[in-house]
Amino acid sequence: MNLNGKVIFLIPGFASDEGDQNCLPYLQDLMLLLKDKLGSDRMEIIAFQYPFQRSTYNWHGIQVHAMGGKNRKGISKLLTWIRVWTVLRNIQAKSTIGILHAFWLSETALIAQIFGFFHKVHSMVTIMGQDPLKSNKYLRLLKLRKFTLIGVSNFVSEELEKSSGHPADDVIPHVLKTENFANLPESEPSYDILGVGNLYPLKNYNLFIEIVEILVRDFPELKCGIAGSGAQHDDLLKLISAKKLDKNIELLGETQRSKVLAIMKNSTVFLHTSQYESQGFAMSEALYLGMKVVSTPVSDTESNDSIQCGKTPQELADCVRIALGNKTRECVVFYPAEKAVGKYLSHYMTFSK
């Protein structure tokens, strides 16, 4: 592709090596898909906080600069920003920067805004999670009109417009690199109901447990699993025990993405109980692997015909009950990867001429 200069990606954290599957897998997939079109020599990644050790390394042919910020605050955060600035200046000195692409309306976007202003480089930002909400302190510092704003869902764009008056310029959902789904092992366990995500309050696994409690009245042998780790692990174990669901719900802990995908391939219903979601990448994975997806009404789920939604524990339990009775499996592509990549490339070409 005839792109004038490099695309520099500014990201809070990135995979520490090619085996680090669980660090922002949706960004790993996107980087690999973009590399197929741009070439690795046209891309560099700057990771602000993670990996925690400062280094420059090669990830699938793409150069990654880890600033080792370790999520520190105060003067340490400022030092991280200075290191990022230094790396950007060094890249600019060696080769032209065509566009700065930040992820999250956060420090990544702020540095892109300032560096872009002084060096006449256009910046775009992909809005990823809770960053469009009014509670995001960076919104007051960012001149949103100067960016190309990309939302990962219509919901994110609408939330940004509510908080700032600026909707996203385009909506490009997270997409899958489907090669990751080839040759998944058959030996992984299967579950009637599976949940995937970090164990913290926003993911609302208390609701997951309540739904299972309703269902075991009719399905006493129900087998459920939750893949993920987090601060609520012990509390959830206690709740499972208090409701006498020890034989029905298994907490799988931190699980490699490839293993999670293999479990999805063998399991029936993906139950998503989150209180907030920008898009829900794991739901896309589950749909692609033929699972039935039941979710709380977050992001754009209510407008997706492949996802069944419920607002109350009973409504969600009823949706799961119906899904358990449907034995067909269909591969559903949430959003075509080639369409998403094409949109990003179009934006890059527009502003890197």
Rank of each mutant, 00 (worst) to 15 (best):
M1K: 10
F9A: 00
P12H: 11
S16F: 11
S16D: 15
N22K: 05
K37Q: 14
G39W: 13
G39A: 09
S40V: 04
D41N: 04
M43E: 09
M43T: 03
I45Y: 00
A47V: 06
F48L: 15
G61H: 11
V64Q: 01
H65A: 01
M67W: 07
N71G: 06
K73S: 12
L79S: 07
I82M: 01
V84L: 07
S106H: 02
E107Y: 12
T108L: 08
K120R: 06
T126V: 09
G129H: 01
S135H: 00
K137N: 01
L149C: 06
E159D: 08
L160A: 07
K162H: 05
S164C: 13
G165H: 04
P167S: 08
D170F: 10
L176W: 00
T178C: 07
T178N: 01
F181Q: 06
E186N: 06
S190C: 09
S190K: 14
Y191H: 11
G195Q: 06
Y200N: 14
I214D: 05
L215P: 12
D218P: 00
D218E: 13
F219V: 06
E221F: 11
G225A: 11
A231R: 00
A231P: 04
Q232F: 10
L239K: 13
D246Y: 10
L252D: 05
T255Y: 02
L261Y: 12
T268P: 05
H272E: 10
S274I: 12
M283E: 08
Y288W: 09
L289R: 01
G290A: 10
M291L: 15
V294K: 02
Q308F: 08
K311R: 15
T312N: 03
P313V: 09
E315F: 10
V320A: 10
V320I: 03
L324P: 08
N326Q: 13
E330Y: 00
V333H: 00
K343Y: 03
M349W: 04
K353D: 14
